[in-house]
Amino acid sequence: MLLLNRFAVSLRHFQKLTKPRRWHHTSLTNELIENMDKKATWDRFYAENGSKGKFKNFEWFFGFHAVQEFILPVIQTMSHFHSHPLHILDMGCGTSALGPCVYKHSPCAVNVTCADISPVAIRLLEEHTNTLSLQSQNPSSVLSFIEMDCTQLRGQFESRSLDLILDKGTTDALVRSNEGRVKAGQIIRQCLQVLRTSGSLLQFSDEDPDARLVWLEREIRETDQAADVGVQEVGELRGVSYFCYQITPRVASHLKL
């Protein structure tokens, strides 16, 4: 069941939340909505959001506790196949607490990387997390932060090196921007290349399955990597339904995970 977070916001309701008067009469709102695939607009958004005083995690859609029942069981299952810490990427993390919370709450050893195209967001999130002195349940767990364009995953990660990729709103932001749908497709293809054959991509989205499943399956067909796509309903928040899409590389039956 979804937990209400007053700093969580649906992309559908972003324009209502960020009325121009709340941003000092700047053009930030329209610029961000139309250019969610651009680094400069995110730098500006997080710079203005971070200038308001005491830091608060800005959560797109919802926070970790709303979806921990989708994430932690996947981690637990994957841990049965590996002796090493699972490498988890929070892709397009912004200043969300999702990645740090996975690091903190996972009973299995995890190596969590929080990545975002905005160096401003990464700096704010890392500085805030460091002040919390988070203690992980597993002493072998690691948490790191990197600036990265998520359409260039292969430039940062080796093929078949990631166990789990989390996408909470990143793809949704791209497909809503003027030129972002092509980049969103690039991310799907890159994810399938860097995921282990036992890994998964979890997309949290407010897009209806009738549209998102068709798009995902079309993008996957354009790759040389077969994959299975599933969906579960997360719940409803402020009248908006959310879903968890799980994309898993399809492995030949003779291969051992």
Rank of each mutant, 00 (worst) to 15 (best):
L2F: 12
R6Y: 15
V9T: 14
R12A: 13
R12P: 00
K19M: 11
T26M: 10
T29Q: 13
N30A: 11
E31R: 06
I33E: 07
I33V: 14
M36R: 06
M36P: 05
K38I: 04
K38E: 13
W42N: 05
D43W: 08
F45A: 01
F45H: 04
F45Q: 00
Y46P: 02
A47Y: 09
G50L: 02
S51M: 10
S51H: 06
S51C: 04
G53I: 00
F55M: 08
N57Y: 03
W60L: 14
W60E: 01
W60F: 14
F64Q: 05
H65E: 14
A66D: 09
A66W: 03
E69K: 07
L72T: 01
Q76H: 13
T77A: 15
M78C: 00
S79R: 13
F81S: 11
S83K: 13
H84L: 15
P85I: 02
L86S: 01
L86V: 04
I88Y: 01
I88F: 05
L89P: 07
C93P: 04
G94K: 11
S96I: 00
L98S: 06
G99T: 02
G99I: 03
H105R: 10
S106L: 09
C108Y: 15
V110M: 04
T113E: 01
T113Y: 06
V120H: 00
V120I: 12
A121E: 07
I122V: 14
H128Q: 09
N130Q: 14
N130T: 10
T131N: 02
L132K: 12
Q137L: 12
N138M: 06
S140W: 09
L143A: 02
S144K: 11
S144P: 05
E147M: 08
D149N: 08
T151R: 04
L153W: 08
R154W: 06
G155M: 12
G155L: 11
F157A: 05
L164W: 01
L164A: 07
D167C: 07
G169V: 03
G169W: 00
T170Q: 01
T171C: 09
T171K: 03
D172G: 03
A173T: 07
S177P: 00
R181F: 15
R181C: 13
K183C: 05
G185E: 08
Q186V: 12
Q186A: 12
I187L: 08
I187R: 02
I188G: 01
Q190S: 08
T197M: 13
S198P: 07
G199K: 09
S200R: 09
S200F: 10
S200A: 14
L202T: 08
F204G: 04
S205K: 00
S205I: 10
D206Y: 15
D206M: 13
P209S: 10
D210W: 13
A211K: 15
L213T: 06
L213K: 03
V214L: 15
W215P: 02
E217H: 09
E217P: 04
E217N: 15
E219T: 06
E219V: 10
T223V: 05
D224F: 12
D224N: 13
Q225A: 05
A226R: 11
A227E: 06
D228G: 09
V231R: 06
E233V: 15
V234Y: 01
E236D: 12
L237G: 08
R238W: 11
V240C: 06
S241N: 14
Y242W: 06
C244I: 08
Y245I: 04
Y245G: 03
Q246M: 15
T248H: 08
P249E: 07
S253I: 13
S253K: 11
H254P: 03
H254A: 11
L257T: 04
